[in-house]
Design a protein around this nucleic acid. Structure first.
Length: 588
RNA sequence: GCGCCUGUAGCUCAGUGGAUAGAGCAGUGGCCUCCGACGCCAUGCGCGGGUGUUCGACUCACCUCAGGCGUACCA
């Protein structure tokens, strides 16, 4: 595990601090505490590989102009034996440092040595992080928002893993509570539709289950013959479950109590849906470590325990027959209900118990939830309740993702949740390649409103940047194949110091920044940094390829060095694409 | 009304308080007798507006305008 950017940066900081120490000893600089300075990587490469603003922030303390201070510091720095070969003063007083040849050779060598683990760091120190994402209701199929959450959450977990954390993926199954009640009610209504006279007529004339569903669904899910009330699920999948149950068991449930019918249908359909979620997510290359069921919380009566605990702690009170949480004690503008006057708990109570389970019972150092932005109001409430239970609420972090705006023919597609006519994850993946979906959903950071152009995604064209990146990989593979066919083998080693072309230097610098970039992505919980990294790497390779011929390098030594550089690029590309779980085709 | 998020190029978006604000797409013009043209190169007076903090602000604070989402004894 090596992060040559970080080690060079640390070395530089030490060099500068040593120089400051000398200046203090000589009485040039004041002995008092000097302000902290920043070492950064300049956007403009002519400003060196690293830049320090030391002289500027010290101007006041030194009572000297920044450029003069920079001169004094640089005079005292001995670069020999360091990763750097030269330093210069620029602009208002920046000190710009340039890395030496050896650093660039070392970069390529460390990629070739570390291979498929190049990019990993121990930044996270093995701290245990639980990443919860998607957690779609098992009452129906997953929609486009789940597709985004899935791609983001899964890649975030990978990023954390590469950054040295122990990350686990978890799906919270809402297999209890109101949604399930509603699910049972919907199933029961549809089942009764099928058992009705009109329903039997449909069964008689329809060719298959699909047609039955379509006929009963009608135009908007509710019709004169098959009416549905306001607060139920209208989707065709509900009808399908009811029809399948009817095929298996006939109208046996038509005469039992409503409650019994709902339970039987729900018990039948829920496991099928949950298995379906697992299957569809697996197709999307997402495999969870844990499927945590809400019903286990209820089975252990943990909802009651939570409320009792909060009551005992004086953080909850009864009013109007309901139990309220003292949210105003935690800076929120109003208290909220934990237990309704009808005796049922609100949705947040099992959630509190669930997060208590994550952070206390299971002892994770951190819990990250990837949630839709419409949940933002819920986060402070959850955190407040956790604090009231004595949990350090900073251990819960939330990645909010803005809604996906679907665009077709240049117009926003309106989605009706009620009629169940959302575009599902499955239909999306039927239309566009999985590689494209995973890449596309990680192209923008979670917290940006995201426009998903269906026409563009369906095109499978090079418009999608994933093809651009994969093309770079295929191009390297092809080049190596052709060289091999001409009897040119991959060298054991080469004189990498021959790589001095600006295109080569930039490419190597970018390769070197992978560990750093992964660390930044982990810190910011933002896997989108890595898709950008991959695109940039591909761009730099294409430029290099265009201006630095490998086969016709002019000398065998240079050719060999360029072959090794190309292999290092390919390895780096592979590692990034592995994190994103995107294929690395050798031919396209 | 209050709270959270977002306003950067024609479009979609990057941009850790720093030096001349960047990509992709779309447009225009070039580059294959030479390792994959699914590529490369050239071409752009744009940080919603206003105060302030700072040596320095797209970045921080306050105000304001616009959009999205919350603000249930729904989840």
């Amino acid at each position: 595990m090596s992060d040559l950017i970080k080690s060079a940066s640390l070395e530089l900081r030490e060099l500068i601090n040593d120089a400051l120490g000398v200046l203090v000893a000589e009485g040039v600089a004041p002995a008092e505490m000097l302000p902290s300075f920043i070492i950064e990587i300049p956007a403009d490469k002519s400003h060196g590989d690293f830049a320090a603003n030391t002289a500027m922030v010290c101007a006041k303390a030194f009572k000297l102009p920044p450029r003069k201070i920079a001169e004094l510091i640089i005079e005292k720095i001995d670069l020999s034996g360091s990763a750097f070969e030269r330093a210069e003063i620029a602009g208002p007083g920046f000190m710009n440092f340039f890395l030496g040849r050896k650093w660039f050779s070392d970069t390529i060598e460390s990629v070739l040595t570390e291979k498929e683990s190049y990019g990993r760091t121990d930044y996270g120190n093995g701290k245990r992080i639980l990443v919860e994402f998607v957690s779609a209701n098992p009452t129906g199929p997953m929609h486009i928002g789940n597709a985004r959450g899935g791609a983001i959450g899964d890649c975030l977990a990978s990023v954390l893993d590469w950054a040295g954390f122990h990350a686990e993926r978890e799906f919270y199954v809402n297999d209890a509570g109101n949604q399930i009640e509603k699910f049972g009610k919907s199933l029961s209504l549809r089942y009764m539709h099928i058992c009705s006279e009109k329903g039997q007529e449909v069964l008689a004339k329809a060719a298959d289950t699909e047609e039955v569903c379509r006929l009963i669904y009608g135009e908007e899910g509710s019709s004169e013959d098959f009416p549905m009330p306001e607060d139920v699920y209208l989707g065709q999948d509900i009808i399908e479950h009811a029809k399948n149950y009817y095929d298996l068991h006939g109208s046996s449930l038509a005469d039992v109590s409503e409650e019994e019918r709902r339970k039987a249908l729900s018990d039948y359909a829920l496991p099928i849906n949950i298995a379906g979620l697992e299957r569809d997510l697996k197709k999307y290359r997402i495999v969870y470590d844990n499927w945590f069921r809400e019903s286990t919380i209820h089975a252990k009566n943990e909802t009651k325990l939570v409320v009792d605990k909060l009551m005992e702690a004086g953080k909850a009170y009864e009013q109007d027959g309901a139990v309220w949480f003292r949210a105003t004690d935690y800076g929120l503008d109003k208290d909220f209900v934990l237990r309704r006057s009808n005796g049922l708990y609100t949705y947040i109570v099992p959630d509190i118990a669930y997060h208590y389970n994550k952070l206390v019972t299971r002892g994770f150092d951190k819990a990250i939830n990837v949630l839709g932005a419409d949940h933002h109001g819920y986060v402070p409430r959850l955190k407040a309740a956790l604090s009231a239970l004595g949990v350090d609420d900073s251990k819960l972090d939330v990645v909010l993702m803005q809604m996906v705006r679907l665009v077709r023919n240049g117009e926003t597609v309106k989605l009706s949740k009620r009629s169940g006519k959302a575009i599902t994850l499955v239909t999306l993946l039927d239309e566009i390649p999985i590689d494209a979906a995973r890449f596309y959903f990680n192209l923008r950071e979670a917290n940006s409103q995201f426009e998903f152009d269906l026409d563009l995604a369906v095109e499978k064209s090079s418009q999608n940047p994933v093809f651009y990146v994969q093309y770079a990989h295929a191009r390297i593979c092809s080049m190596l194949r052709n060289l091999e066919a001409e009897g040119i083998a991959v060298p054991e080693n080469a004189d990498l110091s021959l790589l001095t072309d600006p295109h080569e230097i930039e490419l190597i610098r970018h390769i070197a920044s992978l560990p750093h970039e992964i660390e930044l992505a982990a810190k910011a919980y933002d896997p989108a940094k890595l898709t950008k990294y991959a695109i940039d790497l591909a761009t730099l390779f294409h430029r290099f390829y265009d201006s630095c011929s490998v086969k016709n390098a002019g000398s065998d030594e240079l050719m060999n060095a360029r072959i090794l550089l190309s292999i290092a690029v390919r390895q780096t590309l592979r590692n990034v694409l592995t994190i994103l779980k995107i294929d690395q085709p050798e031919k396209m």
